[in-house]
């Protein structure tokens, strides 16, 4: 009985279900408001934003890289998309063109990151940290003021963040579609399998004939585009964008990825894990606010939960090894 119980705790899904059951019980006792539709909806919004970014980040972490610039990428793309949606000297206000421009900027940024990592072999950690500074300042220079607002609430851009299809909000649908595509690409296509191979052992993969450089660049492009999409969704939800949009999100997204059991050294990880990570981070933020814990301590709680979650993961892994 005892070994069975620990086996369940050790398994990844056992942990995840136990954890959520614990949160549900605590919230049911202390704050039933947690289960109200409007609260669940606000959690879903947060999860959608973090989740899209985390799915993109998953690609980069799988090939053994890391991208700290996603928060600033989201800010830049939101600023670009929002300025081009309004009628001005440069634009006739076409929403689709505005979004395409913003996504192509993201692709350029992704290519640059990828080339720095794959061809020049610079440490991705420092490179993306440096580009993080640069992207924030580009966003700042681009809008030239503190904020851009979405004034026209009658167009497609407004719909991205606020439309509801069968009472499911649009950001959540975008997240689900994005996650589904990610899962499909990673598990069912040659591209996905080779991505895992390239991340697991770059040298072995290239000896087998996989163009690891190409896959690394692709991973960075996908990550930057995912960040850009979530930036656009976020700005549409908030009806505003500035260079502080999504500031510091990279830390939260990293947590989601790590808690989801993705190996930070590359080659291991799944979309379901990352979605769980995003769920956990979103729910945790909400719980902290609802329980009336001062926001000062939210970082402390997040940090402790992450260390605990990862320690449990490692504990489970060592248990399994001992049994074998």
């Amino acid at each position: 009985m005892k070994t069975k119980f620990f086996g369940l705790i050790g398994s990844a899904w056992g942990q995840r279900i136990t954890f959520f059951a614990a949160i549900m019980i605590v919230m049911a006792i202390f704050q039933p408001v947690f289960f109200s539709w409007s609260n669940l909806l606000s959690i879903l919004f947060a999860i959608a934003i973090y989740g899209i970014m985390a799915c993109g980040m998953l690609f980069v972490v799988l090939v053994g890289g890391i991208d700290f610039s996603i928060g600033s990428m989201a800010a830049l793309s939101a600023c670009i998309a929002l300025t081009f949606t309004s009628h001005n000297a440069y634009s006739d206000g076409s929403v689709i063109i505005a979004i395409l421009i913003s996504l192509s900027v993201a692709i350029v940024v992704g290519v640059i990151h990828g080339l720095f990592d794959a061809v020049l072999k610079l440490p991705a950690f420092v490179v993306t940290l440096a580009t993080q500074y640069m992207l924030y300042s580009l966003a700042d220079m681009h809008i030239g003021s503190k904020y851009v607002h979405l004034t026209d609430t009658n167009n497609l851009y407004y719909a991205i963040g606020n439309l509801k299809v069968f009472s499911i909000p649009m950001p959540v649908i975008i997240f689900i579609v994005f996650a589904a595509i990610t899962a499909f690409v990673l598990t069912k296509t040659t591209f996905g399998r080779r991505l895992y191979a390239a991340g697991g052992n770059r040298r072995a993969a290239s000896l087998v004939g996989i163009n690891t450089k190409l896959y690394t660049v692709c991973a960075y492009i996908i990550c930057a585009v995912a960040a850009a999409i979530s930036g656009i969704v976020l700005s549409s939800m908030n009806l505003t964008a500035s260079y502080v949009t999504a500031r510091g999100y990279e830390g939260t997204v990293m947590m989601a990825v790590v808690v989801g059991g993705v190996n930070i050294m590359g080659g291991q990880g799944s979309v379901s894990g990352v979605i769980f990570g995003a769920l956990l981070v979103g729910v945790l933020n909400n719980v902290i606010i609802l329980l009336g814990i001062s926001t000062d301590y939210s970082e402390l709680v997040q940090g402790v939960v992450i260390v605990a979650a990862v320690a449990l993961n490692v504990y489970g892994a060592t248990k399994k090894r001992r049994i074998i």
Partner: peptide, 17 residues
């Protein structure tokens, strides 16, 4: 045996908390 990157990223938050 937690990964050093993860540990220190999280513990940074904990210490400032």
């Amino acid at each position: 045996k937690i990964n050093d990157f993860v540990t220190t990223l999280a513990s940074g938050y904990v210490f400032s908390g």
